[in-house]
């Protein structure tokens, strides 16, 4: 017998799961199907998933011709990569200092981190917008990256993680003549990979999907992230052209979904562990 106990016998469990799974997957199925169908088929509203006439080339071709898909994806990579880089650059030393060093003001700093955890990113958005607009930085990578360069959540996560590392590790490094700075990057960081991966996945998923902030600071295609790209293609180009629209949606969704399917376990664990500690 299984300890957790099955409410239902195995076959019924699988059947229920399969039905629910189908419901959950139906947006993906119909999205993929419509992206391959010609317009007249879509408008006939037939219940067939598979297209009678294959129009994938036209639909995807239209998207690629009208909007800079590669540019959107590249922007997404730059923005997510940049955010993660700065988050780690700032949070790893701070997390280490809060976890392992004694200095006046440490408790205040940690209190600030805990308070910062409570503030949703929408709260500082207005003044940040005004500031970026005043210094003429709207429509720039800097405006997309800077507000998220500091993650109190990352500081908190690394602090918790580093507290669990044995002090002997640091004593040994100090006896070997390392300064605190090289301890951080040569001793602490290599030991922080599990926490860093989990946080990295959490951060990339959050910022790849973010719409709120890009919508505020970016106009036009040049700096648009994938989320914004879908929105722009929708309002400017697609109109009622659902085939092309779905093709655009597939193209922008694919990278992260593929990454997820390749590293499922890490994604789920990364988001579950960061989620539970947040």
């Amino acid at each position: 017998m299984t300890p957790r106990g099955s409410l239902l016998p195995g076959a019924i469990r699988l059947l229920v799961l399969a039905l629910l799974g189908l419901v959950f997957l139906s947006p993906y199925l119909w999205m993929a199907a419509a992206s391959l169908k010609p317009l007249d088929e879509i408008f006939r509203a037939s219940l067939a998933l598979w297209p009678e006439n294959f129009a994938g080339v036209e639909n995807y071709g239209k998207v690629l011709a009208r909007v800079p898909v590669a540019q959107y994806l590249w922007n997404g990579v730059i923005v997510c990569g940049g955010i993660l880089f700065f988050q780690l650059l700032f949070a790893v030393p701070a997390g280490y200092a809060l976890a392992k060093l004694r200095f006046p003001g440490r408790d205040i700093a940690f209190g600030a981190v805990m308070l910062g955890l409570l503030v949703p990113p929408h709260v500082p958005a207005l003044p940040l917008y005004v500031a970026f607009s005043e210094i003429g930085l709207l429509n720039s990578y800097a405006a997309l990256i800077a507000p998220f360069a500091i993650s109190v959540f990352a500081i908190f996560l690394f602090r918790q993680f580093f507290r669990a590392l044995p002090d002997e590790l640091l004593h040994a490094a100090r006896l070997d003549g390392m300064g605190e700075w090289s301890i951080v990057w040569r001793v602490i960081l290599p030991n922080a990979w599990p926490a860093a991966t989990a946080f990295g996945i959490f951060s990339v998923v959050a910022h790849w999907n973010d719409l709120f902030w890009p919508l505020i600071v970016v106009q036009g295609h040049a700096r648009a992230t994938p989320a914004l790209g879908v929105l722009q293609f929708r309002s400017e180009e697609a109109g009622d052209d659902f085939g092309a629209m779905m093709a655009a949606a597939v193209l922008m969704t694919l990278p992260l979904v593929l990454a997820f399917l390749l590293a499922q376990r890490r994604f789920v664990e990364g988001i579950a562990t960061t989620g539970l500690k947040g």
Binding site: P27, Y28, W30, M31, N209, L231, T253, I271
Partner: peptide, 11 residues
């Protein structure tokens, strides 16, 4: 959870 919410909204 990991899908681009804007794109899925379109779907």
């Amino acid at each position: 959870v990991v899908s681009l919410s804007v794109a899925m909204a379109s779907a």
